[in-house]
Design a binder for these strands. Structure first.
Lengths: 349, 349
DNA sequence: CATCCAGCCGTAAACGTTTACCGATCGCAC
DNA sequence: GTGCGATCGGTAAACGTTTACGGCTGGATG
């Protein structure tokens, strides 16, 4: 495998020094004649600069990583879709880490920052930012944007920005809506409580019920995973325990899919017998039958915000940490559509 | 921003040469005592090797790129889901290029190989592999796996493997099935003809009709894009032109989604009035209403196969090119389910 | 004609590793 | 006590760039 040409090869061919070659290729002021000779040699040799050598010298890799739990989750896909073009536009390549929600893996990514293979990182840690995460980030001294909750006690000067949504309000929006269409026995299918969204949504569910003057009933809550089959299992369990429930609040759209499967299986009409609300408002929500009312947590916006914050740091250097909050909103679709009631569509299901 | 420790720092602290440090860190045989001193110093300093310097020296980056048209397309997501863990397992990081189907962009990725920022590439070129693609691959001298069709005239010794599916057979499976359930006026919603899948599926549709003894009717064909809204537009056009059609063959699941939207909008029963078949058998297919019969082109398998081929080359060096063909299969679901007919399920819709 | 300055460009160092090569040291055998 | 071989570790080069520094050339100026 013949090695490609380097600036040394070009220098020889053009009869100049490697310094001149480099200057020409980087557009630094050079005599017209030299420029021509170098350009000609470079063209003839089909020269392409070695990005690794350049990175070593320049101390930047022009690469950015995005670490998330699972690239199969439409939420993260939506983020990547926003992040990738923005980074490309700014001249950065994008690395993907799918950590499977494994805390060790997440830490590995953060620690990996010290290997300096990327200039910055966007991370969405499922299990939350621990003491150790923080230490790793500080030690890395590379800009990091965390999508999700950040602990209160971030040390001064850590190069960390934060993008978050307000899932508390999100859950609140959903329950208010369910209440408004007359539902009172509202089940809750949650994800693991040791994840950030899981914990937040559990608390939010309780709070929202209280605000509505509804009793909190442990029997109405089922905890599983953030996947479709897990959602189905949870829904089955919940339905057999509380056959009379009239609504299901699901901690994400995948869980809601599972719930819809089970409701259909049991011959329950949605939303007639049971209304269903998902969260994340993924592409799936407009595809299901009936289409799924879902709380949008602004995945695309969060992706954009994260990329914006990171690029700003990369391009303009250190500054005080920033936080961007994305407001949730409710998209009402068929799974809660009750004819004749305000704010709902009678068809569209 | 204090710079991190390098092997030089360690060497000083441990009172040895950088060569010894490197040897210890790489596990080469060294005196017990030296090992301890170096390890101790490295630990105390929290040393992490600089991956860029290592790459420069070793002439490998431990990075692999995957280039596809659109990370939003579930087909590619399915591939990434398989590719990422396999690469991680083998110690490679994954770079993502979403080229938006732009031929220039694709070429840019291939040319970028010469910058040596990755050790290998998996690419799924929407517009097909042109002369120029081939030149870029040969010039790169880095292993490439192409998912999709490869031109016949690949030059000897180009380090290219190929993974393909047989969409001809795929379309055939779908049309045979539609014929079997009694459909005779089968519309076809295709993607752009200047894409590889688009062209292949157009030809396959014609062929399959012929094999079934059905006439080819241009009026039954609509060409758009591989997206949902485009599918909807195409379906609308087709329905108004040929109101009597009894089946729709869609060139991918997204198009099928659009078609289902329009059929519902027009009050046509699926599959009663119109049966619908998609292609790619994405996650979406089991979510729609009715669930979507779809031709699986084995996205996950193709991803796995591509990763396998690439890793083999990376780990075992040059060898003759290989081709892996993934067989399509038909997954029958609600959108073609006709009660009482063999091979179809009466419920499940 | 001497001096100065500007403009070019070449030499060399640096980025942080890995590794070929060789010299030093030690133990052992004679 | 000498010599030999094995073992260990240090020096230096190499990977392919960028860039500080200084030397050379030429023209302009006094």
């Amino acid at each position: 495998m013949t090695e490609g040409p380097t600036i040394t090869t070009i220098a020889q061919r053009a009869g100049v020094s490697i310094a001149s070659v480099s200057r020409v290729l980087n557009g630094l002021p050079t005599r017209e004649d030299t420029v021509r000779r170098v350009m000609r040699a470079a063209d003839e040799l089909g020269y392409v600069p070695n990005s690794v050598a350049r990175s070593l010298r320049n101390r930047r890799t022009d690469q950015v990583a995005f670490a998330m739990a699972d690239i199969g989750n439409p939420v993260y896909v939506a983020m990547v879709r926003e992040i990738q073009p923005m980074l490309k536009e700014a001249g950065y390549r994008l690395l993907i880490h799918s950590t499977d929600g494994d805390a060790e893996d997440e830490l590995g990514v953060l620690r990996g920052l010290r290997e300096r293979y990327v200039d910055g990182l966007i991370i969405s840690p499922l299990r939350g930012v621990t003491e150790e995460h923080v230490r790793a980030i500080v030690a890395a001294r590379a800009p990091v944007v965390v999508i999700g909750a950040l602990p209160v006690g971030m040390p001064e000067g850590a190069p960390v920005d934060n993008v978050r949504t307000d899932s508390r309000t999100g859950v609140r929006l959903a329950l208010d809506h369910l209440y408004a269409i007359g539902r009172r026995r509202i089940g809750f299918l949650n994800g693991p409580l040791d994840t950030v969204p899981g914990a937040a949504r559990a608390a939010a569910y309780r709070e929202a019920l209280e605000a509505l003057g509804l009793p909190y009933d442990e029997d109405l809550v089922e905890v599983g995973d953030f996947y479709r089959d897990s959602g189905a299992r949870a829904a089955r369990a919940l339905l057999s325990r509380v056959p009379g429930l009239d609504a299901l609040m699901c901690a994400n759209d995948l869980i809601a899919l599972g719930a819809l499967d089970v409701l259909r299986e049991h011959g329950r009409d949605v939303p007639g017998d049971v209304a269903v609300v998902g969260m994340d408002d993924t592409d799936l929500a407009s595809v299901t039958w009936p289409t799924l009312t879902s709380v949008s947590l602004g995945s695309a916006e969060r992706g954009r915000a994260a990329a914006t914050l990171l690029l700003d740091r990369l391009q303009n250097g250190p500054r005080e940490p920033r936080v961007t909050v994305v407001r949730p909103s409710l998209t009402v679709r068929g799974s809660t559509a009750v004819p004749g009631l305000p704010g709902t569509a009678g068809d569209g299901r």
